[in-house]
Design a protein around this nucleic acid. Structure first.
Lengths: 334, 334
DNA sequence: CTGAAAGCGCTTACAG
DNA sequence: CTGAAAGCGCTTACAG
């Protein structure tokens, strides 16, 4: 059997409560008593049982993280940083993949996953705000991303509109006039696709360039899907002189297909992405993209969630954080 | 307060034990009784408290996964699959990043992380076998990878030597004679670098090509490190006509640097990698690499670990699984 | 088949 | 500053 607090108390010749006091850094404790307890802990190799602590205190010091697919590079890099930040504050992160399925998002929101964790970092792709509001339970919840924009929720997001606008302006400044957008539908106005498309349209308006729906192509945000879309565009003979992929994975897939088809990047077609995943820097040609302040997103979201859990953030309304961004101009769209 | 089993028992008019029996699928239970309990559960929206269950039963239905860095693409893809496989068997995965630091590996092996989980999928990069054997505790442990090769441990690994040999033979068959290996030191013979280097040497021997230590360059297995190594090689004017990167990330970084320096791939220098991450297919040129049976590794390792946890695998000795591999011949080394 | 009781290992009022 | 006791919500022998 494992060593318990009782064993420690017995060896140190004190009560259970005193051991608990030492473990929880209670301050009014005689140094000699504390030392006896510490010695006993050391001698027995005692380690607190986190499950028991969790049952009694109602806190697990675990954060939940729900995202669609951990193997998508943006999520992998984000999850890695979230875990590091959480770890520095004494929390672990339990990840759940939703596969972008509504039922999985729902069960992550109010199922057993939820009671295992003290708070949730939630990246829904399907659920609507009212459903989330209805099922959110009483534990803290921080929304990551922009699928749900609702003042009721704490949210950490990025400057999607302005970043996409800046990137489009950059492409226009380079003389591109027929910029295909991959990863959104022409009618989108909400969520990451819609916001980024809005930024694109604003830049077009500012430059006096007409919006052409045929250049807006929906796609999953994956490499293979980006490649397929370019294939279709080329086969349909829609002329375009730039591709703005709404995330890097998709942009890299698109670029791959262009190069295979003998289209020169950036000479014939410039390519830009969004996310600045590590892969973007090392692609050939290296990918021009938007760096959305991932470290800032990680720090602010974990910080906000833990502050809610620990009662340090008490605002009645949702707290809204928008991380900064930078354009990374590289060879694919100089 | 949350709904408890007591509330369910009261509403259903049965004892606690009966509710527990229903929840745990005990078979000898009157259908009518069972229905009453099920109705009460439904009416109250009862959900079992996993922490309490875990404290009492000693099982958390969580698997630990320790790896150096979740943002490395191979680990991200592997973790994603491990989580899916575990989920299908009713387990969650709690991930811990070690940053390839010995102290982190140690604390993951026998610290609080360990008691939270029923078993561990462990990818150590620093610890030696005796240390692991001494601190492994009593819970099941499955080693992933080849840093530790020791009959005492359950291990799931890949055919490193034969795969590297096959890839090297492929490069030799393409007429390459000066194949630089990036990611190992000339003296390595164990661990992933050592085993893959051994395969390389065997292929050289078989072809009667001499081994040249100057062509073996150590490097972290990351894109940026791969790029730096190529920079150094070119600056030192070491002639080479192929690069075998011991993982894909590094190979892709190396390829990027070659292309920037005006070296043609594959005409001047062929490039091959190891892992077949999704990125390899969409690189330009697409990367020739080894597909190490990642899905098989995920299924076998999770399966073995859960079988150990549930007592279905009782072998006294370590079970050893070696997943198959395939060469993926693409444009970077046709 | 079902019930009453003990106990997993902690934390937390409550006394003193 | 410290002790004795209760209780978090389950599961599991033990009776019946």
């Amino acid at each position: 059997m494992a060593v318990t607090m009782n064993d420690v108390a017995r060896l140190a010749g004190v009560s259970l409560k005193t051991v608990s006091n030492v473990l929880n850094d209670y301050e009014f404790i005689r140094p000699a008593t504390k030392q006896k307890v510490l010695d006993a802990i050391d001698e027995l190799g005692y380690e607190a049982n986190l499950t028991a602590r969790s049952l009694r205190s109602g806190k697990s010091r675990m954060l939940g993280l729900v995202l669609s697919d951990l193997s998508a590079p943006y999520y992998a890099e984000l999850a890695s940083r979230l875990m590091s930040v959480a770890s520095a504050r004494g929390y672990r992160v339990l990840v759940e993949q939703s596969a972008a399925l509504e039922e999985n998002e729902l069960s992550a929101l109010h199922g057993p996953f939820r009671q295992l964790t003290d708070g949730l970092l939630f990246t829904p792709l399907r659920l609507d705000p009212d459903t989330v509001a209805g099922r959110r339970g009483s534990k803290p919840l921080v929304m990551l991303g922009e699928h749900i924009q609702d003042p009721r929720f704490d949210t950490v997001t990025m400057k999607n509109v302005r970043a996409a606008q800046a990137m489009t302006a950059h492409l226009l400044a380079g003389g591109r006039r027929r910029i295909a957008v991959i990863g959104a539908s022409a009618g989108d106005s909400t969520g990451s696709p819609g916001l980024r498309l809005t930024g694109y349209r604003r830049a077009l308006d500012e430059a006096g360039v007409g919006f052409e729906p045929a250049l807006i192509v929906p796609s999953e945000w994956r490499r293979d899907a980006g490649a397929s879309v370019v294939e279709a565009l080329l086969d349909r003979a829609v002329p375009f002189d730039a591709v703005f992929g709404l995330n890097d994975a998709l942009a890299l897939g698109a670029m791959h297909e262009l190069l295979i088809r003998g289209v020169k990047v950036p000479q014939d077609v410039a390519v830009a992405g969004f996310d600045d995943i590590d892969e973007a820097r090392f692609a050939s040609p290296s990918l021009t993209t938007v760096a959305p302040g991932m470290q800032e997103i990680a720090e602010r979201s974990v910080g906000l969630l833990i502050d809610r859990i620990e009662g340090k953030e008490k605002s009645d309304e949702g707290v809204h954080v928008e991380a900064g961004f930078e354009l990374r101009i590289r060879s694919s769209a100089p």
